[in-house]
Nucleic acid binder design. Structure first.
Length: 544
DNA sequence: GTAGGGTTAG
């Protein structure tokens, strides 16, 4: 299986011999320029290669591919399919859907290549309704019996559609290949039906490495590391995914040591770790606050030298150091980076803010703006946190206005939460209360509890009661039974009771404490809420 | 000449 993939790869390289040197968008633009001056711009096969290189071979060049594609007066079906494929695998899969709509408008007939790309986009977006519509079109055009199309359908339905539909497609197949078996197995495993998944796995007449990986992943996802390990020991061959699955599994269940052992074993077995391996390990260290292990992982990354995914890894390293409490190391990595993206800045600014370095946070944010890097909503959470901890009420207001007026970002619940915290800490309780009431989105329980905490700190029982009433009036599913309990305590002015309830909630959450934080005892609930997502990993989904 | 199933994250 792996060998087959490699062959495919080298064929592709041979076929694209002229385009082989073209590994970045700058070279591609040069070739495009050459094509324009030399008349190749109207040569269909040259155009096909250009579109293909842009949409498939170079990552992050989909915008350019879209621009190019618009200029082609009559693209052929191959070009349409190439664009669909590129969009489906890009960070903006919804573009595939609009491309298909255009295809229909221009009466270009889809073929058996078109639909797998389209379904892939629906699956990635979890667009169930759209996926079902696509299924309808597949039936209409008579492609349901095509093995590739049918397997993609099984995958769509078992991923986000109706598992019984996936089952029916599978059962109704005249011949089921290894992909059909593993797609359905993965579907059952994903929904927690490990029994059915295992039954399919045992029954399948053919198994390849992916089949084994699917089953191991199933056990790992439901935390059954024992059975995962059993299969891992039995598997006839292993690839980087097999190892990564096990490592991620140990990380998920908090066995940082076992994850590291696996990593050592992996290297001994001669398997080269990839960026997924390293991201897993870094997040293990960040979660457990294991600075010494994190440093080892960091030096491994430097030794191995990951080319294209360097920025993502460096961002994760910054995040790891910050979460382990070593701001100095985080800053050193940040300062040494040759290229930075928004996430690099966010990881560093967030790290500083999380540890209460208010002034440094604002300074770095100012530097970011000076360098014309566009901050996003995550950046502003960090900036507002810094204002809050630094007691910078006026600046906080300014930045809050800045995010909407200068960057056109609609404030989200986290930004509002920061503002309430900012006002509450400064003792401006009535202002905080009015601020919540004027919010353009529904305040959540955390926002009200932040105000409640401030009322306690400043000894304002009267407003605390009001905040509690609001908490109580919230929908039960948002705040849970805890609100009721909290209300009972707080309405009697028993702040210790409120604290107990909050602690109960913290303890029941899966989030672990950060390794070392200067503000640990300081509105922990809000801080966990604000920093729960890894800023360095969010970018993937933010780039459109 | 283009395609399908598995790992990170949410």
């Amino acid at each position: 299986m792996i060998r087959k993939k490699k062959d495919k790869c080298s064929n592709l390289q041979q076929r694209l011999s002229i385009w082989e040197r073209c590994s970045n968008i700058r070279t591609l633009k040069q070739i495009h320029g050459f094509m324009m001056v030399s008349g190749f711009n109207s040569n269909p096969s040259a155009l096909r290669e250009l579109i293909f290189t842009c949409a498939i071979s170079i990552s992050g060049a989909m915008d350019y591919a879209n621009q190019l594609f618009k200029q082609i007066t009559e693209p052929d079906r191959f070009m349409w399919n190439t664009m669909l494929r590129g969009s489906a695998q890009s960070s903006n899969p919804s573009n595939a859907i609009s491309l298909y709509t255009q295809m229909e408008e221009r009466h270009v007939r889809p073929d058996n290549f078109t639909f797998p790309f389209l379904l892939k986009a629906c699956t990635k977006l979890s667009w169930v309704k759209m996926g079902n519509e696509v299924h309808g079109k597949i039936v209409k055009f008579g492609f349901e019996s095509n093995t590739f199309v049918r397997n993609t359908l099984i995958n769509f339905h078992s991923n986000c559609g109706d598992l019984t539909v996936a089952r029916a497609l599978f059962d109704g197949s005249p011949k089921r290949d290894v992909v059909a078996w593993s797609a359905l197995t993965a579907g059952y495993a994903r929904r927690g039906d490990l029994g059915m998944a295992r039954q399919l796995f045992d029954e399948s007449p053919i198994k390849d490495l992916v089949s084994w990986n699917v089953m191991i992943t199933g056990y790992v996802k439901c935390g059954d590391m024992e059975n995962a390990r059993k299969l891992f020991d039995e598997v006839p061959e292993r690839d980087v995914v097999t190892w990564n699955t096990m490592i991620a599994g140990y990380v998920r269940c908090g066995s940082c040591d076992k994850a590291m052992e696996m990593f050592e074993e992996m290297r001994c077995a001669g398997e080269r770790p990839d960026e997924v391996t390293m991201l897993s390990l870094l997040s293990a260290c960040a979660d457990s606050g294991a600075l010494d292990v994190g440093q080892k992982v960091h030096s491994s990354i430097s030794e191995m030298g990951f080319g294209s995914s360097k920025i993502v890894l460096e961002n994760a390293v910054i995040d790891m150091y910050a979460k382990c409490g070593s701001i100095e190391n985080a800053l050193e990595v940040f300062r040494r980076m040759r290229e930075k993206d928004v996430s690099s800045w966010n990881s560093m600014i967030g790290g500083l803010a999380f540890h209460g370095h208010a002034e440094e946070t604002i300074n770095l944010f100012t530097e970011m703006r000076r360098e014309k890097i566009r901050p996003n909503e995550i950046t502003f959470v960090a900036v507002l946190v810094a204002c809050s901890h630094g007691g910078m009420v006026e600046e906080g207001h300014q930045y809050f206005n800045l995010l909407r007026n200068e960057y056109g970002i609609e404030p989200n619940i986290k930004h509002y939460g920061c503002m309430v915290d900012l006002l509450g800490r400064a003792g401006l309780l009535n202002e905080a209360f009015r601020f919540i009431e004027a919010m353009e989105i529904e305040p959540n329980a955390i926002v009200w509890r932040t105000l409640l905490g401030a009322c306690r700190t400043h000894g304002n029982v009267e407003l605390g009661k009001q905040a509690n009433e609001r908490l109580l009036s919230m929908r039960r599913d948002q705040s849970g039974d805890y609100v009721l309990l909290s209300n009972i305590y707080a309405s009697m002015g028993e702040w210790d009771g409120v604290e107990k309830v909050r602690k109960l909630m913290d303890d029941s959450g899966v989030k672990k404490d950060p390794g070392c934080s200067l503000i640990e005892a300081d509105n922990k609930e809000l801080m966990n809420f604000l920093f729960e997502s890894k800023p360095n990993l969010r970018l993937k989904y933010n780039v459109i």
